[in-house]
Amino acid sequence: MIILPDPDPGPDSGGDGEAAGGSVPRPGARVVLVDAADRLLLFSSRNRDGTLRWYTPGGGLRPGESHRDAALRELHEETGLTEVALGPEVWRGRPWTTERDGVTYEVRQRYYLARVPVLEIDTTRMEDFERASVTGHRWWTARELAETADLLRPAGLPRLLAGLLADGPPRRPVLVDG
């Protein structure tokens, strides 16, 4: 497990310019949303080969938006939740690239922990492109995550969630793939 140094105390806006290899930077914020039953909320999308990929709520930062503000905005859009107490950044994703509409983006994600009561979520505020790509959502136990053959993001999610539930948030964000 790689623990990152203390985060930069400066503003954490999206930034601009070019990332490595001529790609466009795309900073992202995600929420590790855990309910009172210790279940994790994940959304699903289909991979090109038809298999399912599961991931936490979140998305890209808007210009001038902080990671924390983006995490709360995305959480509201994707789940209907407001007034969520966003906890610490627990994971930081290694950069990876993706292509959309002919543009290559370098994605750099931060993951924040939030605890909520057991509840149903409301996806009616999702943006059109999210509705087109999201195939479902569900609450997962650590055991269910460990038993699925579906692709989970970030990689190692069953182990990462089990560690959070057993030990609480790390002092500094843990570097993850995805």
Rank of each mutant, 00 (worst) to 15 (best):
A149V: 13
P25D: 04
Q109T: 14
E99S: 09
T124W: 11
D150C: 10
H76S: 12
V90C: 08
R68Q: 06
L164T: 02
D69Y: 05
D35S: 03
L75F: 03
R108N: 09
G163L: 04
L157E: 01
T124N: 10
D101N: 14
G17C: 08
Q109W: 12
V116K: 12
L42G: 01
L33D: 05
G178D: 03
T51G: 10
V90E: 01
E74H: 13
G156K: 07
T135C: 14
G15I: 00
S23I: 07
E99N: 09
P9I: 02
G15T: 05
A19P: 05
P25Q: 02
T141I: 01
P25R: 01
G22T: 10
V103L: 08
L52M: 13
L175M: 09
D122I: 02
E147V: 07
S66V: 05
R26Q: 14
A114T: 06
G17V: 01
T148M: 07
D150M: 07
P117G: 11
H67P: 01
W96S: 15
E78W: 05
R39V: 02
R159C: 00
R53L: 14
T104D: 14
R62A: 12
A162H: 00
M126V: 14
P88N: 08
D49Y: 03
D16E: 15
R143K: 12
R138A: 13
P7L: 03
G80N: 04
P169Q: 00
E106F: 06
L41R: 04
A71C: 12
V32P: 00
A155S: 11
G102C: 12
E127D: 14
H67Q: 12
A20Y: 13
T104M: 14
A85H: 14
E144T: 03
L113R: 07
P88S: 13
G21C: 09
P5S: 00
D8V: 09
I3K: 08
T124D: 15
S44W: 04
L41S: 04
V107P: 02
G136V: 15
V176E: 04
A162M: 05
R39F: 01
S133K: 15
L145T: 03
G17D: 07
G156A: 13
Y111G: 07
A132D: 12
D150P: 01
L164A: 02
L165G: 04
L75S: 06
A162Q: 02
D101H: 09
A71D: 04
A146H: 04
E106K: 07
E106S: 12
E127S: 15
P9G: 09
P173L: 05
P173I: 03
R68M: 00
T135Y: 09
T56P: 11
E147Y: 08
G80Y: 08
G156Q: 13
L61H: 02
E74C: 09
D122W: 06
S133P: 03
R26D: 13
L4F: 06
L151R: 15
W96Y: 14
G163S: 11
P173T: 05
A146L: 05
T104I: 13
A19I: 04
D12G: 08
P27Y: 06
D49S: 08
R153N: 10
V90S: 03
